[in-house]
Design a protein around this nucleic acid. Structure first.
Lengths: 353, 353
DNA sequence: ACGGTGCTTTTGATCGTTCAAAGTGGGATC
DNA sequence: GATCCCACTTTGAACGATCAAAAGCACCGT
């Protein structure tokens, strides 16, 4: 069978179609300039030879690599971040719609990693960057802005003035919704299990909780993990053993929530029936049968699309969407059994005691 | 301050150092050909101008993109695969050591996705592919071999003859070790919670379990999830409610094991003390306080390194390591409380019941 | 007949690098 | 002193695409 003859070039296609290089190039990049009849002939030749423009040659001439840089952080032990997984996928897919791909690289955290970004830029290996996991005092947005490098971040610049474009999840709004949901179910003693102060994401979420409590005339009741994340079980345990324990637990993450569920089980309490529990992230495990954790679901796919849209806008590939330089998207509350008393008719909403 | 002058080229460096293009090129690619004195002068000019070779130009000339293609599968709902995360990171890091980067792309599963691979090849966008998540009757290894495309897979070709190079985890050996570990602890009724037949990975793992049982003169006792993965709780429940329930549960994945732990909690049974539980993957959650699941840990970082090593070998970048065309690495059993009775002296092995 | 206009196509130059081959100059060889 | 060799350096020609500008051609009005 006719092999693809992997050596097709503009020149060879032009020869086959009886036109010049540039005409073939125009068929691909500016078809309206080519007479319909010629165009068809060229397109047939392209098909026949399975021609695809060489990316390196195109990049060299146009000074665009059609690659977006994305840094994969060293996976810290015990750092399960199921969200970034989905984000990378969404970005990759959105980029593909415009002929772009994602280039992965690694870099140490903080200012030490900026070299890698600089290296890729100097090599003209990427056209811009997608940032994720921005942290407080992250040096990247400021540095990239100074260098005039196109980038869009998933996550605010948590300290100092906003630098560059970003898309983020409104964790505060999500937590407010969680509290309101619990309040509507009749809960009045709602505690919050959080991270230590100082993390942008964590502080944002606790702020939403506090605001909702004040508005609903509830007393905020906040406990924080001292020894880092992952100690939800202990914290929840202490809460549940209090003289007047909370009837509902709002957790800064699903991970904390799983710990809280564990603490409930330790005491023979049943989630949803005895104590309500809400997490954040809507991790896959939350919807497993037997877990059924109510959780706030981040619109990761949409964030990925918007980040790419903005970045390609900066690059002049698509029209830059009008509007503000950042977008704050609301997470959605996925209500499951952990905030809904089980019963013979699980579909019916139940008024709490 | 002196801006990096992002426009440095071979020519401008040559001018600055008072030599020709090619000499600068040689300093970078074949330093031994250049007189030490000249070399130093050129290196200083490179430093001063912050010169980095343009990747597109180099790729165009050498016909090597220095990019490895990696397909991110559409994240199926409820498909938590914390392992691939780490794998991608390991591959990215190993590739960086040789000046390579990872190019991400998406493709539909099965034969329909081959087009995307072909597209990238025709564009000369990548030099080869890293495959992950190989499944039974995966069309990719065969197709890539036919096309003469360099690739290495993480995962065997589960059906038909082996095509191409691969690195994989010896799931069978891991499960055998798990059974032996339980046997040494005194367990004699050891059940296996598995996936439906037909998945390469699942069948491999159950085979290791069965082999160990036969060798140790135990009766294999296998139950499988009918409705796909994630129903470990139900399966374990049925086992525990049997007239003569097993004293230990070996699970095909951590996900199943978490379900099993849940089933234990439902019945007031304590993992490690009443019933032993072992998972597979050593997911981050396994080592959370309060979970403490014994699990088989895959040497993902090593696999990533080896995959890259082999692929760069195929590409002629490094010397192809001698030896067989595939490597099978043993997972390590991380022993935690779920197979170890709690007590004042957790180090002492306990005879069962 | 002439030049202008608009549409279509072609030509030469260029992007920044490496390959292949040719050019230096000094010292040893005959 | 001519020859050869060796170590080092330079020169021209690609790689495959796009940009910018020129050229061909049909049609129109004067």
């Amino acid at each position: 069978m006719a092999a693809p003859e992997s050596g097709a070039t503009l020149e060879s296609v032009a020869l086959a179609a009886g036109v010049s290089r540039q005409t073939v190039s125009n068929v691909l990049n500016a078809p309206e300039r080519v007479a319909p009849q010629t165009r068809q002939r060229v397109e047939e030749a392209i098909q026949a030879l399975r021609y695809r423009p060489n990316r390196s040659a195109r990049s060299l001439r146009t000074r665009m690599s059609n690659l977006l840089g994305y840094c994969v952080q060293p996976a810290a032990a015990g750092n399960l971040n199921p969200v970034l997984d989905r984000f990378v996928h969404a970005v990759t897919e959105a980029a593909a719609e415009h002929g772009f791909h994602v280039l992965l690289f690694t870099a140490p955290a903080g200012a030490a990693g900026l070299d890698r970004y600089a290296e890729l830029l100097a090599q003209r290996a990427v056209d811009g960057f997608v940032l994720a996991d921005t942290v407080v005092a992250d040096p990247r947005p400021g540095w990239l802005t100074e260098q005039g490098v196109p980038f869009v971040a998933f996550g605010r610049s948590w300290s100092g003035p906003d630098r560059g474009l970003w898309v983020d999840v409104d964790g505060a709004a999500g937590m407010t919704e969680a509290v309101e949901h619990l309040h509507a179910l009749g809960h009045r003693r709602i505690a919050f299990i959080g991270w230590p102060e100082g993390s942008g994401v964590g502080d944002d979420r606790v702020a939403g909780y506090t605001a909702a409590c004040l508005r609903l005339d509830l007393d905020p009741w906040i406990v924080r993990a001292e020894g880092g994340p992952g100690t939800g079980r202990e914290l929840a345990g202490r809460l549940l053993d209090a003289a007047e324990p909370p009837t509902a637990l709002v957790c800064v993450s699903d991970e904390s929530a799983y710990g809280a569920l564990r603490a409930l089980a330790d005491r023979g309490l049943r989630p949803g029936e005895d104590v309500a529990v809400i997490g954040f992230d809507d991790t896959p495990a939350a919807r497993l049968p037997g877990v059924d954790l109510t959780s706030l679901s981040q619109p990761i796919e949409q964030i990925g699309r918007e980040v790419v849209q903005m970045l390609l806008g900066l690059l002049g590939v698509v029209e830059l969407p009008p509007g503000p330089e950042h977008r704050l998207l609301r997470p959605a509350l996925a209500v499951r059994a952990s905030t809904r008393p089980a019963g013979p008719d699980p579909a019916a909403p139940t008024e709490a005691r």
